[in-house]
Design a protein around this nucleic acid. Structure first.
Lengths: 193, 193, 193, 193
DNA sequence: TCCTAAGCGAGACGGTACGTCTTGTCTTCCA
DNA sequence: TGGAAGACAAGACGTACCGTCTCGCTTAGGA
């Protein structure tokens, strides 16, 4: 059973080739326009090989997202703690996006599909609940229900993130995060009294 | 030239039947799962008839959105002026959505496609530019560029709107708009000094 | 309901094109080597069109056989009666094969599949039962059961027919039938006493 | 040099396992429906193992036929001589089939493929030429060419054999051979004058 | 009142992509 | 080092939709 390493390496290599092919094609034509056949041709891979690794195009796409997520969490744990500050988390994400720009553009830019955006949305919402539930998510006396609050914070963040990814503006991550903070922090503070 | 009225009536009737069929099907299965064949069958219409009226499913869908837009603009001009207040506009939209709930759910809810959301986004952004450009969109000295500001305001609004449409919560339109104002107004004021 | 004629003509034309394409390809590569894709390409027809007319390659093939059968039965009823003589029937078939040599080679030659041979076998066996049952197929006192007798006569005939189709020998149909009669008639007479 | 015996044994064992697996599967689903994957799974063998022993499914199948042929020839040489009598040879084969019924059904029954039948046909034709050429195969003055004669005799025989294998009738080998003789001998004698 | 142009239903058609299946080759590991 | 396990490229299969098309029928409206 130890002898599987080499085989596993082959498998991993094929998966990587497929992911790369998809990302490249997304940046060229946009997610929806890419067909499984395109990916297969670009990756020089047999049709059945594709389907033995991934259920469909979405699955391949999301596997790329998972890589991204793992990288990001590694990045997070390496960095400073968040001090319970959501805008610290958003900063990390802006920074991470900046250093993996092509990947982020393919996955979360307007060329990417809805699939990833929804995934990221869910992921961030979960992350927020996890880290800040004690602070406000369980208070019952607010005008704005915690659910709405979380949804708003994540949506606003992603609005700025995707805008940034889709317009080739020279703003650095820190500038983007400052905007995000300026726009959202006052409202959040007001709501939390 | 004059004799076309009866024919036009027939044409309008067919278009309406197709729009209704699509809306009904979207609420049943979600936008993506609906095929042109489904619409044709439901509407009891020939395939070529469909394509003589609309280029594709998206075009039919957007024609439904146009109806909505016209209704909404009628509603707007009937109501009080906005006094240059974005949260007055958002209130009108929440109210309009409330009184056409099924239609809004089909078009902008999670059953609807991305197509409509993007369309609405663009429309609202244009509306904002139109009405409030004098106020701040042309100031050059802000930390947050007007583009980002508009994008943020529309995105936040739509986040609350879609959340409201997709979760069957009993909040009235006014309550939703209060939340929207509470969350966004302080930040906007701060940014505008 | 009269308006279906034009459509039917189109349908018949497409079916004919597909049959012709298959027959040509069989003569080129043999039945088994021909793929549905080959037929589609040769016939300049869409994939779904093929499947809307025929369930699979075998069905298309057998539809060609049905044409042949109809032709043959027309030929039979035009010609002299069989007088209850099986070797008269076999003669007709040798003659019919001779005048439609390419078609017979494609369907029943070694390039053709097993499908047609089995079909023809069954067809001829049924034909025999129909025409000669009174003579001997219901006698119970024979050493050779009627079933075996019919199977033997048809198999022998087809052995000579396929041999003839597969070897480009200059024997005319009448010569082949004489051989068939010489070989089988004495045995049949002996068995029937 | 010395250690090859054990290896050869292993090799033989693998080949046998594969043959058995194929035969069993043919009786279950028919030759055409059996895939290489089926055989591999049934035999608990790796894919490359299969292909290192046999070129393809047909080759494996025919190797089974070769075993049968060797057995039969052993059986032949053990028994009485044929006295130049074809119906003695056919009797031996009917008898041999009777005592290896399952194997014959798998190879030559309707579950078996065309491959075996063609092989057996060729083999028997050759056997006939070998043993009886002096008698008539070289006469030039017959109405029926020797080629056709041989083809007819073998085809008739196989017609009766396969009929017998495919219908579970209680006739013993001798009875089948009597039928074969009754049907064919008179014609043959007549042709040979 | 009849004629004629257009709207329309029905659905055949050429295409494209899908996800499944099988084949024969190639790579890796292990005994 | 040679045989077993199984990953792989290739490509056919049958299905599902798409957007174009051809065909007769119905149904105004103007003559």
């Amino acid at each position: 059973m130890v002898g599987k390493v080499g085989v596993d390496r082959r498998i991993q290599r094929t998966r990587q080739i497929l992911q790369d092919a998809l990302m490249a094609l997304i940046l060229e034509k946009g997610y929806d326009a890419v067909t499984v056949q395109d990916v297969i041709d670009r990756a020089n891979v047999g049709r059945s090989t594709f389907y033995s690794h991934f259920q469909d195009k979405d699955a391949l796409f999301l596997s790329g997202f998972e890589s991204l997520r793992e990288q990001f969490e590694q990045y997070l744990s390496d960095g400073a703690s968040m001090n319970g500050d959501p805008w610290n988390l958003s900063l990390q994400m802006f920074q991470h996006a900046q250093s993996h720009l092509q990947l982020y553009k393919a996955l979360a830019g307007k060329q990417g599909g809805t699939v990833a955006l929804e995934h990221i949305h869910k992921y961030l919402t979960a992350l927020m609940r996890e880290h800040f539930k004690s602070q406000f998510l369980e208070r019952k006396d607010m005008d704005v229900p915690p659910d709405v609050l979380a949804h708003y914070m994540v949506s606003s963040f992603m609005a700025l993130l995707t805008w940034w990814l889709d317009h080739d503006v020279p703003y650095p991550a820190e500038r983007m995060n400052d905007m995000y903070r300026q726009l959202t922090q006052p409202g959040i503070i007001a709501v939390l009294r």
